[in-house]
């Protein structure tokens, strides 16, 4: 390959952060016995009413999408706090609990408290994937939450009455993943052509489907899905503005699958779903990141009053 032959040639948009209209600082969020890593971005010279909590779930605070979002929001006049949950990124702890209560809920509530200490009186919750459900459920304990902006909340995990750690969402089970790879045309082609890929699939299948993995998963009840659905229904009277983004290839949107009827009934009165082509799961492409960024910015800015929204020109941050 010639140097740079498959690399971006166009330089990124210019932005010197030291000249940006916001300040950033590290904040240690104390949650129980854990110390959570958080970066707060605040618009320079003003104390906004709106504070946005960005919880990026299983990615980390190093992820460029969430960093850009935090800065974008601050540049547009709201305080943002991007949080590494316990056991993620730079935070302490080990994330064993993949349920929606326990330490994750504790982390969210502790971070909201930090936003309040910044003078924020209206909280917007922004989150992704599994944490999006955890954050939405935590909203019942956040009376000043005015909106939740969710990226691919995995409503499909609520199809089973009881969800077990390691064997959770049907579409994410190891066996189904392997099968899906085998039957997709691109996967088949790659399996035939690429010995490394064959080795990868074989190693992964062996590693995932082992007696040890089954033992680890057995008996670990993570949450009672019916209880979660009941709690989601209970958010209806709160008149919380809730928007969720899905890619057309992503599972999870409670739309037409009969198995999702209970979820649909629970959230139908308040959930607004948007779709973009492809997948936003993992936001592993720049295109998906742009779609998520646009969705989050639009929905957060919609919570501002007209006077709050007059915060000068939007920056195109790198």
């Amino acid at each position: 390959m010639s140097p740079g032959s498959n690399a971006l040639v166009v330089p990124p948009p210019f932005c010197n952060l030291s000249e940006g209209p916001f300040d950033e600082r590290y904040e240690e969020v104390v949650a129980g016995d854990d110390r959570l890593f958080a970066i707060i971005a605040t618009p320079r010279g003003r104390v906004p009413d709106v504070g946005v909590l960005l919880v990026h779930a299983v990615t980390t605070g190093q992820n460029r999408l969430w960093i850009r979002l935090g800065r974008d929001l601050a540049a547009r006049g709201v305080t943002s706090l991007r949080l590494d949950l316990h056991g993620q990124g730079e935070s302490s702890g080990i994330q064993r609990d993949r349920g929606f209560d326990g330490k994750t809920r504790r982390d969210v509530l502790a971070a909201v408290e930090v936003l309040r200490a910044q003078g924020c009186t209206r909280i917007v919750l922004v989150s992704y994937c599994w944490a999006a459900l955890a954050v939405l459920l935590a909203a019942d304990a956040i009376p000043d939450a005015v909106a939740a902006v969710l990226v691919r909340p995995p409503f499909e995990v609520l199809r089973a009455p009881v969800v077990l750690a390691g064997l959770d969402a049907g579409s994410r089970s190891p066996a189904r993943k392997v099968l899906r790879t085998l039957v997709s045309p691109a996967g088949r082609q790659r399996l035939i052509a690429d010995a490394d890929y064959r080795a990868w699939v074989a190693a992964r299948a062996l590693r995932r489907i082992t007696p040890q993995a089954a033992r680890q998963a057995a008996g670990q009840t993570t949450f009672d899905a019916q209880d979660v659905v009941r709690r989601l229904a209970g958010l209806g009277p709160r008149r919380l503005s809730v928007a969720a983004l899905f890619g057309t290839d992503d599972p999870g949107a409670p739309e037409s699958d009969p198995r999702d009827r209970a979820v649909r009934d629970a959230v139908g009165s308040y959930l607004r779903v948007e779709r973009v082509p492809g997948s936003v799961h993992g936001h592993g492409t720049l295109e998906a990141q742009e779609a998520v960024r646009d969705f989050v910015l639009r929905n957060v800015l919609a919570t501002l009053t007209p006077s709050e929204n007059e915060t000068g020109p939007a920056l195109d941050l790198p």
């Binding site: 971006l8 790879t181 997948s279 592993g284």
Partner: peptide
């Protein structure tokens, strides 16, 4: 391939969601 999604080959060069600058 694992995620059964396009690898973004039509877009700008990138690696795992990070741009690959020249």
């Amino acid at each position: 391939l694992r995620a059964d999604r396009s690898d973004g080959q039509d877009g700008p060069p990138e690696l795992h969601g990070d741009p690959l600058w020249s």
